[in-house]
Write a protein that binds this DNA or RNA. Structure first.
Lengths: 190, 190
DNA sequence: CGATTCTTTGAAAACAGTCAATCTGTGTGG
DNA sequence: CCACACAGATTGACTGTTTTCAAAGAATCG
């Protein structure tokens, strides 16, 4: 479990064994069954949650009760609602495991303490946030400029790991198109 | 000029007069005419750029040469390409003034030094990044779940300040719809 | 005032969504 | 091992929305 995280951090920043050990001790392992949720809308999201294996999905319901996929997460990704986490406000999102999944979690208190104690972790954290923002910008560009077929192919190419882990109707909901449209795109392109 | 920024910072964090003074001394004022750009694609974006008045637009061309509005900025917003700034890579974006605009700029070197020297500024910076990410998430949800009309009304309601500062065809390009569609939405709803 | 940019409109075509039905694969219980 | 249930994926027919293209009407600016 933790080895995955250690490798992940060491690839991003130089960090001492002591710091790693401290981070390890503050962490908890959680195993999730397929379909299990770590966040329901209305709850406050107050953990840092790193995926070591499996697959997760962040989603949200619209006013008609239709769910929309905000984001997926697989190994080495974080599952979170930054807004709820930062502000301590009730979340509008849900986070569920799409398959058997193992995550490392830290409470917000412990994570804050770790950030204060470890400059390397702090740097790593900043990088993660920056990377997340850049990813969002790219996705926004694809959503405003691509056709349905282009969005599909771009997703498949950019995130093959995710593409191969999640059901197609969730890919459709991630891309903002209907599953039928996605199905027809697939038929026409292969 | 600088007063706008000082007020902005003080509303976010507690900061000493000395720190403010230091930030002020490192800053430069730049006046932009309508249509003037501070970034062309291919260049490296290596300044922090705070808008004290006026209006800016971050945009990008797709492979057909059509431009798409990534983001707008008005007073108290930042104009940037985080990815180019962070990684030092050539930008894929363009940033232009949509009207006479005054910005405060810091070179990346100076800004980094300020962040290192002022914990308050660093905290403020983190908040800005977090807020930017949250904003992106909201926009993604609107792009994948709203109809064209809903996107329009949401934008108008959420960012009235921007809505009233930019031409409609750019609003359309920001929302990912054609100007004709936007025009018809407006006709049908008033 | 003329030039340019921005916005609106109409008609046709392309595109995507909906609904209902069917097909496919997986896993479960008998 | 089979039959059945269930979730996921596909298809067809239809509807509705959005884009495209071409043109004309405002608004703005030198």
């Amino acid at each position: 479990m933790f080895e995955v995280f250690e490798k992940y951090v060491r690839e991003k920043v130089a960090i001492s064994d002591e710091e790693i050990q401290m981070i390890r001790e503050a962490s908890n392992v959680r195993k999730l069954r397929k379909g299990q949720s770590i966040l329901h809308e209305g709850e406050i999201f107050s953990i840092s949650c790193f995926i070591t294996s499996g697959c997760m999905r962040v989603y949200r319901f619209d006013k008609n009760g239709v769910d929309h996929t905000i984001r997926f997460g697989i190994q080495n990704w974080w599952a979170s609602d930054q807004e709820s986490y930062n502000k301590g406000t009730p979340s509008e999102y849900n986070i569920e495991a799409l398959a058997a999944t193992i995550v490392l979690v830290w409470t917000k208190e412990k994570w804050d303490a770790l950030l204060a104690a470890s400059p390397a972790l702090r740097k790593c954290n900043e990088e993660i946030l920056a990377r997340g923002y850049e990813t969002s910008q790219k996705r926004i560009f694809s959503l405003i400029s691509y056709s349905a077929a282009e969005k599909y192919h771009d997703f498949q190419k950019t995130y093959p790991g995710i593409f191969n882990s999640v059901p197609l109707h969730m890919v459709a909901s991630y891309l903002g198109i209907s599953r039928e449209t996605l199905s027809r795109i697939r038929r026409d392109f292969s």
